[in-house]
Nucleic acid binder design. Structure first.
Length: 739
RNA sequence: GCGGCGGUGGCGAAAUUGGCAAACGCGAUGGACUCAAAAUCCAUUGCCCGAAAGGGCUUGCGGGUUCGAUUCCCGCCCGCCGCACCA
């Protein structure tokens, strides 16, 4: 098992903290890392420290830049002007994935649209593979669903509507080509470049201009507000519906989005709720073309009012209409995605510099590999101002063009931190390599990660970006696998009074306090005992004392046993109930941890073992045979609790055996001792519990039924009725069905 | 609206494949030890009726399948999370 530790150190939170406290982000980041490390050590967590690194170290980000250049060479990193999400508080651009309900993920400020030159990764090229390969990983269903929805693949058709007045063609994307005969109007997004040109010279020109201007100033949040009334303005033009030649009116309306499809739609009010609402408001024709339910209806059914396709089921008409359009040159099958390219440039200081220079003669020129890393320079003022603070480092910015040698300027944007974290797991495999990001043979040996663990908050962002990086690296031959994380476990979050812990809310529980008060063993065990790890929990102090008491009990039991009994080899003689319990606990802990991450019930099993030992210790300590079994049981409790409470577990084990638990193999349950000789069998009448009887384990069905039938308490419940059926479950239960 | 997860004692929770509902812990109550307290140890603790023996009820609500349902199916209610005018 590779057990590394590292720090995703670049980024906005680190920088904002530094600005607030007036320190250089490097200093505050490194101080935080020291504190983290000190805590990990005090918790007694086993980590391979030879592999430790931070993503802010030049030795690491040199290779982040190297990967960027490889993506650039393949056209997977490109620069483009785009309407982007701008956070006015953090003074930076955000990725789509970092905009939550129209607000900045980091600070909650509503984002504004801005048109800027930015760097993008072409993740959309991988949309289909990112979607299809979800079938090859063992991930929780909800995470797979979230990724699938985020990619948002829709199959449909592109259909061309022609505006005869201007002589221009407008393609639209539709998932419902079967409803084309019901298209009674046409709508464009306010951002569509042709909108104002279309309205020009018509009676609606002024109105359209005002509408577009207003729409462009609105934030995504305002515009996307739920249950908002449909608005729009006619453009005074028509387009031709290609299936029937009808002239249908054009509108501009903000319910159509420029980012999706072509920024224009055909509207079928009879079979689309949004178009229906718009048509009602503007008094437009609503024409039914599918015989389904009450309008608007999106159900299936036979076509009507659809010319020669009448009577055909809409699912069949779907393909036939597209085929016909294609033969006429007015349409073709098409696939659309919700996924957008990944905007990776940030106008901030504390990030990995983008390794390119801008040359007046050669344009954008990549920095050659042998000049990497492009080191982040120290600047006086790194507070955000809308352009990157690096632009102020004039000495650093001015450079020569690697291609022509002339004067050039460095790129001053830095990378989104998600770039840094998209390949760190590869570096963990080979962290000391200074000649390459990693050696392919080493990475291929370790990867993919057999068991990845993280919070659901990474379901889309990190987990999508890392998958994209691995696929791109695989295509370039740098790695020999397609998916980075074979199995995923999403642990829950520990909240405080139902809220996420945060310094600004002042509701942070520091583990340090508990380590100091109770010791690391109690703090660790309690965290794991509080509930199932996938579920998360609200923190409460109630219960910490229970675990602390238990560990104290185990300690005193070991001390007393060491005093009262002599060291011995493995237990011999007839098994006591305690010896059986010890093997039962081995099985519970082993299977629970291995198969289900059921740490809470694993700890409960060890508690049961210790409780039983308390009740049986006086009896067992009295005989030589019993003493060996008692020692074994206590030593077993020590080794089973070792993964959770390592300090105490190791001490207990050593007191009982004189050996070091971490040098021993994990205990194995003796299958023979897991099965009792006599089992308690439940006796039911009509499914109701009426008695319990002792039956030899593994008894024949007839034998088990006979013993149950002889139960003295049974008679009153049979009450003279006739037994019509008897259900026997071996070693468990007998149910008499009485009429 | 769509998708996902969840709802079990006073509380955190457990129940492996449809087979004893509530393991384990917290809290509470009683007892032992102590001058006393803390710590520790022992016992009781789902709800209702009953002096007890015993009986009845109980996994958000209503149905269903089954000898038997916390578990499977159908229909609701509530909570949390994600997406959301995606054509």
């Amino acid at each position: 098992v590779l057990h590394p530790m590292g720090y995703d150190a670049f980024g906005l939170p680190a920088e904002n903290h530094a600005i607030r406290t007036g320190q250089h982000p490097r200093d505050s980041t490194e101080a935080s890392i020291e504190e983290f490390k000190r805590q990990f050590l005090s918790w007694g967590i086993s980590i391979d420290w030879t592999r430790e690194f931070g993503t802010h170290e030049p030795r690491y980000y040199r290779w982040t830049q190297w990967i960027f250049l490889r993506l650039f060479e393949r056209g997977l990193a490109y620069r483009d002007e785009a309407a982007v999400n701008w956070c006015p508080k953090d003074q930076t651009v955000l990725a789509n994935e970092q905009v939550i309900d129209g607000a900045c993920e980091r600070c909650g400020t509503p984002v504004e649209p801005r048109l800027l030159e930015q760097w993008f990764f072409k993740i959309t090229d991988y949309a289909d593979r990112l979607l299809d390969d979800l079938a090859t990983v063992e991930w929780p269903e909800h995470v797979v669903t979230m990724q699938r929805n985020w990619i948002g693949r829709s199959e449909g058709a592109e259909v061309v509507f022609r505006c005869e007045d201007l002589g221009t063609d407008y393609p639209v994307f539709t998932t419902r080509p079967d409803t084309l005969f019901g298209a009674t109007f046409f709508v464009m997004a306010p951002e569509h470049p042709d909108v104002l040109r279309l309205a020009e010279g018509t009676e609606h020109e002024e109105e359209a201009r005002a509408y577009v201007n207003h729409a462009l100033t609105e934030s995504a949040e305002e515009r996307g507000a739920e249950a908002r009334d449909k608005t729009g303005v006619p453009l005074g033009r028509t387009v031709t519906n290609p299936v029937n030649g009808e002239q249908i009116p054009m509108f501009v309306a903000d319910y159509v989005l420029m980012e999706y499809g072509t920024g224009a739609i055909m509207a079928v009010p009879a079979h689309d709720e949004r178009d229906f609402e718009f048509a009602q408001k503007f008094g437009l024709e609503i024409r039914r073309v599918i015989d389904c339910g009450e309008l608007p209806c999106t159900e299936d059914g036979p076509l009507v009012n659809s010319g020669r396709f009448d009577g055909l089921h809409n699912r069949e008409a779907f393909g036939q209409i597209v085929e016909w359009l294609e033969s006429e040159g007015r349409g073709k099958p098409s696939v659309n995605y919700r996924l957008r390219d990944w905007l990776l440039s940030r106008q901030r200081y504390w990030g990995c510099p983008i390794p390119v220079v801008h040359c007046p003669a050669c344009g954008i020129v990549p920095v050659p590999d042998d000049q990497l890393p492009v080191e982040l320079p120290d600047v006086e003022d790194y507070a955000p101002k809308g352009r990157s603070p690096l632009a102020a480092a004039e000495d650093w910015v001015r450079t020569s063009c690697p291609r022509c040698g002339g004067e050039a300027r460095r790129e001053t944007d830095t990378m989104d931190t998600f770039v840094d974290s998209s390949w760190y797991f590869l570096r963990y495999c080979d962290p000391l390599d200074d000649s390459a990001p990693f050696d392919r043979a080493v990475v291929d040996a370790w990867m993919p990660v057999d068991q990845y663990i993280g919070g659901v908050e990474h379901a889309i962002l990190h987990l999508m970006y890392a998958r994209f990086f691995v696929k791109a690296l695989a295509d370039m031959g740098h790695v020999g696998f397609q998916e980075p994380f074979a199995r995923l476990f999403t642990q829950g979050m520990i909240t405080r009074d139902g809220a996420k812990m945060s310094k600004s809310k002042g509701n942070v529980i520091s583990p340090r306090e508990y380590v100091e008060r109770y010791g690391a063993d109690t703090a660790r065990s309690y965290m794991l005992y509080i509930g199932p790890p996938e579920q998360g929990a609200d923190w409460s102090d109630e219960g910490v004392s229970g675990i602390n008491r238990f560990l104290g009990r185990l300690w005193r039991l070991a001390a007393e046993t060491a005093e009262r009994t002599a060291p011995s080899e493995s237990p011999v003689g007839d098994p006591s109930p305690l010896l059986r319990k010890a093997h039962w606990a081995i099985e519970r802990v082993t299977a629970g941890v291995r198969d289900r991450f059921a740490f809470n019930t694993a700890i409960a099993a060890v508690i049961e073992l210790v409780n039983d030992a308390y009740l049986q210790k006086d009896e067992l300590a009295g005989s030589d045979l019993g003493a060996t079994q008692l020692r074994f049981a206590v030593a077993t409790a020590g080794s089973l609790i070792f993964p959770f409470a390592p300090h105490l577990g190791a001490e207990v084990f050593e007191m009982m055996t004189g050996r070091r638990v971490w040098e021993e193999p994990w205990p194995e349950a003796d299958a023979g001792l897991l099965r009792a000789d006599v089992v308690e069998v439940v006796v039911q009448v009509n499914g109701k519990l009426r008695d319990r009887v002792q039956v030899p384990a593994g008894a024949a069905r007839e034998e088990q039924e006979r013993i149950a039938r002889e139960s003295p308490r049974l008679e009153q419940f049979l009450d003279g009725g006739e037994i019509v059926k008897t259900v026997v479950v071996a070693d468990k239960l007998v149910n008499f069905v009485v009429r």
